[in-house]
Design a protein around this nucleic acid. Structure first.
Length: 507
RNA sequence: GCCGCGUUGGUCAAGGGGUUAAGACGCCUCCCUUUCACGGAGGAAUCACGGGUUCGAAUCCCGUACGUGGUACCA
């Protein structure tokens, strides 16, 4: 078999959502597993939906996820250009060839005429009539017009499209790598437009031509493309390229609360749907991404990989390299999967625990700095992160879990202390403060011993005192062992926090 | 409407004629921990429905229902 070449062909129309990233992932994994090439080709033939900046955004996302292409508009490659708008000249000749060979035809119908047709043929049973073998005989095209009429229209530069001429009563079938044998009745498929009036190809023509020219061996795309597969199959055949046709796989959809996962689902239920922050340049509306939400790319890739695929074992945590080694298309699920944000967070938690702090501390540092918390001592920072990583699900959780190591808590959970606060406890802390100031070896053991001994001496249960101490140092009922916190923040800071809190509690 | 594709706990799912129908997330209980987590031990919860085929069906076949995608000069 020739070298494996797969492509991801996004249209730059907005943020890169979960389904998109997973499609890239499966393409990428398959390519890398077989030592092949991963190509990214931009489908920007639709001028009206094109969104400025979306292309760069897509590449940023791929980079963040660790899926760098081998060929792309940015990198170039042997089959450049990789933007369909720049390949415009390629397509017309293939469309013309199809017309010449009798597999396609010119259609001169105006927008109004098409609308009229749809209106005229509309019935209760058929709410959306297609431009198919039965209606094409009644329309204005090179099948119904005489040769001279057609030539005349063409000479006059009348706006026209080229449509595929779907055969009648044929069954066309192919083998999908995930679903097996799939077949379609050609009479039921419409005469899809291949070349638009503006000279741009539609997706149908463009994928086939580009896949052929770029020597794509495997074509993986979302399940939403399944209904138009017969058009593509026929194009490969009609263009005479059948023996070079890639193998197909149609990936299951990622579902939201109902239907294909949408931006709305995310907004509604409070989870991201895009890989990275996306700001729509038209509306200026920001949609939060997984990256900014505090996800690790390792976790993001991992959770997407197993949403619709598994290797048959009980393993759930995989690195990119492991995925490359064991991924196989035939273990991809046929059914769509509903996205579960709780499980997504679990994956991130697992990765935070699994990875060494050094691999993400820069990201956490950025988050800290954006919250106005300065991080100066790298060794100290690492030590703190190491101490609290087990209790962080998202990278952003580090703020809540460890900001008190870097700055005095602004808000203390006074309400949890006050009801049980009394002079005995107050006096205990005053005495403890005195002892602390005399300690020379500031370590966990000395702090704890002094505390416990004093409690015994004062005849107060240590448990009664530990909670207030925690709130004094940390601000709330969370975080690592109290004495560990005291040890790390140091003598000065510990004493100062207790002193401040004492005043607060006694008011 | 028509066409395509699906359907195993709330979610992700293993299993593809004989299983006590794995496992994970979430939920609940307990242990550990004088906080919150981590960790550990348990628990509740599933084969869409109806017909076949078969000694035997979650598994094969056919219907039905439901879901989902398509039905654009969008991808």
């Amino acid at each position: 078999m020739s070298k494996v070449r797969v492509r991801f062909a996004p249209s730059p129309t907005g943020g890169l959502h979960l389904g998109g990233v997973r499609t890239v992932l499966y393409n990428y994994l398959f390519a890398k597993k077989h030592g092949g090439d991963f190509i990214v080709r931009i489908e920007d033939t639709d001028q009206t939906r094109f969104v400025a900046g979306a292309e760069d955004y897509i590449f940023d996302c791929l980079k963040w996820c660790g899926m760098e292409p081998d060929e792309s508009p940015l990198l170039g490659g042997p089959y450049a250009p990789y933007r369909q708008s720049e390949r415009k000249e390629n397509y017309r000749k293939y469309a013309e060839q199809l017309v010449k060979d009798g597999f396609a035809y010119y259609a001169f119908d105006t927008k109004e005429e098409l609308e009229k047709m749809r209106e005229d043929f509309k019935t209760a049973e058929n709410p959306s009539p297609q431009y198919d073998h039965s209606v094409r005989k009644k329309m204005k095209n090179s099948l119904t017009l005489t040769e001279t009429e057609v030539k005349d229209q063409l000479d006059k530069n009348t706006a026209h499209v080229i449509r595929i001429k779907m055969p009648e009563n044929e069954v066309i079938s192919f083998t999908d790598m995930i679903r097996g044998e799939i077949s379609f009745e050609t009479s039921l498929v419409d005469d899809k437009v291949l070349l638009k009036a503006d000279g741009m190809p539609t997706y149908h023509l463009a994928v086939v031509v580009d896949d052929y020219l770029m020597k794509i061996t495997h074509a993986f795309r979302g399940e939403e493309w399944l209904p138009s597969a017969p058009v593509h199959l026929l194009l490969w055949k009609y263009l005479g390229w059948q023996k070079d046709m890639p193998q197909w796989a149609h990936l299951p959809l990622i579902l939201g609360t109902n239907g294909k996962l949408s931006k709305r689902d995310g907004a509604k239920y409070g989870f991201p749907v895009f890989a990275m922050n996306w700001t729509d340049p038209k509306t200026n509306e920001l949609t939060e991404g997984f990256k900014e939400k505090g996800f690790l790319p390792e976790a993001f890739i991992n959770l997407l990989a197993v949403l619709g695929w598994n290797d048959g074992t009980e393993q759930e945590i995989y690195s990119m390299q492991e995925l490359i080694d064991i991924f196989s298309m035939d273990r991809v699920h046929v059914a769509g999967a509903k996205f579960d944000y709780e499980k997504a967070k679990w994956f991130n938690h697992e990765w935070i625990k699994k990875l060494e702090v050094k691999s993400y501390k820069l990201k956490v540092k950025e988050i800290f700095e954006s919250k106005g918390i300065a991080v100066n001592n790298d060794a100290y920072f690492t030590k703190v992160l190491e101490l609290v990583k087990d209790r962080c699900t998202l990278l952003t959780d580090f703020v809540q879990q460890s900001s008190f190591f870097f700055k005095t808590p602004e808000q203390l959970d006074v309400d949890s202390v006050k009801p049980k606060w009394n002079d005995e406890k107050k006096n205990f802390f005053i005495d403890y403060l005195k002892q602390l100031s005399r300690i020379d070896t500031w370590d966990l053991v000395s702090l704890e011993t002094a505390f416990k001994n004093l409690a015994v001496e004062k005849n107060i249960k240590p448990g009664e005192l530990l909670a207030p101490l925690r709130i004094m140092l940390v601000g709330g009922k969370f975080g690592p062992a109290v004495f560990q916190v005291a040890e790390l923040i140091g003598k000065q800071e510990t004493i100062s926090r207790i002193e401040k809190a004492l005043i607060l509690f006694s008011n």
